[in-house]
């Protein structure tokens, strides 16, 4: 609280922002019916995790900044995930002519 009075942003503010972003992403992931929006929600969640990593790296590990290295790796993996996910989506759309998540039920028993 003394941080807040002195004007600088406390660590908790970043963590709470990341929590809000992550929960929004989870809600969108569960409730989206458009497959593209599901991928966007996953990107939101990955960004929330990245904000956490960067905040910890800056506030707790300011000397070695290992969190920033992890964030770079997370960005790399997210890019790969987006490319493969959208390729799967295109292939799925070509075969089922819909992007409705409710109708992608091939694996349902």
């Amino acid at each position: 609280m003394s941080d807040l009075l002195s004007g600088s942003v406390p660590l908790e503010a970043y963590l709470l922002l990341a929590a809000v972003l992550f929960c929004t992403g989870v809600w969108g992931l569960i409730n989206s019916r458009n497959a593209v929006r599901v991928l966007m929600s996953i990107e939101l969640m990955l960004n929330a995790v990245n904000i956490n990593l960067m905040a910890f790296s800056s506030y707790v590990d300011g000397d070695l900044i290992r969190g920033q290295v992890f964030a770079v790796f997370v960005i790399t993996v997210a890019a790969a995930e987006a490319a493969v996910g959208l390729a799967i989506l295109l292939s799925l759309y070509r075969n089922r002519v819909t992007v409705d998540m409710e109708r992608f039920n091939l694996l349902r028993w």
Binding site: Q68, A71, I75, A82
Partner: peptide, 30 residues
């Protein structure tokens, strides 16, 4: 704001420049 200029540049290049454009292309294709 967190003193991480390299990761900020990577974020703009990879997310805004690549992932977002890829998502827009996917939206146009489907």
């Amino acid at each position: 704001l967190l003193n991480a200029s390299f990761v900020a540049a990577a974020q703009v290049l990879v997310y805004v420049g690549a992932v977002n454009v890829l998502i827009l292309f996917a939206i146009m294709l489907v």
